[in-house]
Each structure stands twice: as C-alpha cells, then as structure tokens.
C-alpha cells in the first residue's frame, strides 16, 4: 500500500538520509525507530508530502506522493492545534478537503469530538485543555480527513507516562473501529517499548547518513503482555541493533 523507495535527503551538502526503502502493507501498524538526529521525523514528513526528498520516491497506492493528499493524515508531536481557533474549528480544519456546507461540518466535528471524549469542550480554546486532551483533538482532526494512512510523529512523547499509556490503548481501540477508514499507521518514536507494544513491524534506522538497519516483525497477538519473554526478547533485539 505504501512503498518507500530509496529515499535520499541531504541538506546544506550533508547527507542526512542516505537511502531508506521499505514497504508498508494494508492493516499494518509500522513503527520507525532510530537514534536522535537520524532524520526519522524528516522521513515521516517526506512520506506526508511536506518535504521533498533529494532522491527517491514515496508511492502510495500506485500514486507518487509529492505533496499532501487527503488519503494521508498526520498527528503532530506537539499537537499543533491553532491556538486562536476553538477546538471544534481545529477539528473542522481536517474537513478542508471536503466540499460540504458549514452545518454539516459542524455535525461531523461535534461527533468526532464526542467520540474522543471531548464533549463540552467544542467551543473552548485549546489553551484550557490538558496535553492528552489536546492530542485527542489532534487525532479527531486527523481522522476527520477520512485518511487511509495515518502518520504519527512521536504522538505520545509530549504526554506524561500515565496519559500516554491510556492514549496508546485508545489508539489501538480506535483503529479497530469499523467506521474509521485508516488501515495503515506509520508511527515515528524513540520509545522502543512503545514501538514493540503497538506495531506489527518495526523499522530500525541507523545513525546519519541514515539507512534501514533492520526490519523487525512483532508477531505477537494483541493485547500484548509487556512482561512476557517474547516481548522483552524483541525489545532486547532492537536495542542490540540500535546500539550495534
């Protein structure tokens, strides 16, 4: 469904990403993990069409991605809510691709906010929300676009651990829901345990100039026992690859 082919990215003459290639299939949850500065956030933005790679292609369902498209949505690390718009207006931004009237947009946005547990906060501004709530608005906005692919840039790293744990579960449940069209998630993270908990496959990146070191499959059934031998074994393997 998503083909990353020989992505190369350099800036100011220095190679950040040397060559990255991998596939992502339907109904998969793929994590990208790598050392600081290896360009994983940049890679995600290249996939989103926000940044142009200096070489290589991103192919999504046989279409080359050169700019953002409706089928690919994005959840930001710092939530990226526009502070001067109400929460419902922020969610409605996700409906910009659709040519529908304002009342219908309102209805859809209200439903989404309710689904994410934010009923009552529609007309408030982001500044009254906690981090977890802001990220939920971020998710609502991203889902509003009805994307088939959801890209997430360290979506839980700005949250405290308790909130993050809850949200990880919520995201997994959300993806199981029938009426959410997302059937591929690509998540960038620096948290190995998080990657192993959520993903079907983990793409492990090297240091700069970055290439794919390993693609580790996680064939464990959800919900995963984070203390099982298999789980910790996979974590150890990935750490070994990262530091090796």
């Amino acid at each position: 469904m998503l083909k990353i082919e020989k992505i190369h990215y350099e800036i100011g003459g220095a190679d950040i990403i040397e060559s990255i290639s991998f596939d992502a299939r339907k109904n998969e949850f793929v994590s990208i993990i790598g050392p600081s500065g290896c360009g994983k956030s940049t890679l995600l933005r290249i996939i989103a069409g926000l940044i142009k790679p200096t070489g290589g292609d991103v192919i999504c369902m046989n279409k080359r991605i050169e700019e953002p498209v409706r089928e690919i949505s994005f959840v930001f690390q710092d939530f990226a809510l526009l502070p001067w718009l109400t929460n419902i207006d922020n969610v409605k931004l996700g409906l910009s691709y659709f040519d529908i009237g304002a009342p219908e947009k309102d209805k859809i946005a209200m439903e989404l906010l309710a689904r994410f547990g934010l009923e009552g906060f529609e007309y408030a501004y982001p500044n009254v929300l906690s981090g977890g709530m802001k990220q939920r608005v971020g998710f609502a906005r991203a889902i509003a676009q009805e994307p088939s692919i959801l890209l997430m840039d360290e979506p839980f790293s700005s949250l405290d651990e308790l909130t993050a744990t809850t949200m990880r579960e919520d995201v997994l449940n959300m993806l199981k829901t029938k009426d959410i069209p997302v059937n591929l998630v690509v998540m960038v993270t620096h948290n190995v345990e998080e990657a192993v908990q959520l993903s079907d496959r983990v793409v492990v990146l090297s240091n700069k100039p970055t290439h794919v070191k390993q693609i580790k499959a996680v064939p464990l059934k959800q919900p995963r026992n984070t203390r099982s031998k298999e789980f910790t074994g996979i974590i150890d393997e990935i750490y070994a690859t990262l530091t090796g």
Partner: peptide
C-alpha cells in the same frame, strides 16, 4: 508555532480559508 504551516499543508487549507 512552527507547525502552523505544516498543519495548513497537511489538511489542505487553501485560499480564502
């Protein structure tokens, strides 16, 4: 915020909007 432009591009907010 830096990601104002990213948000604009990702969600296709254009023109008068």
């Amino acid at each position: 915020q830096e990601n104002v432009m990213e948000v604009k591009k990702v969600f296709g907010v254009r023109g008068a909007k």
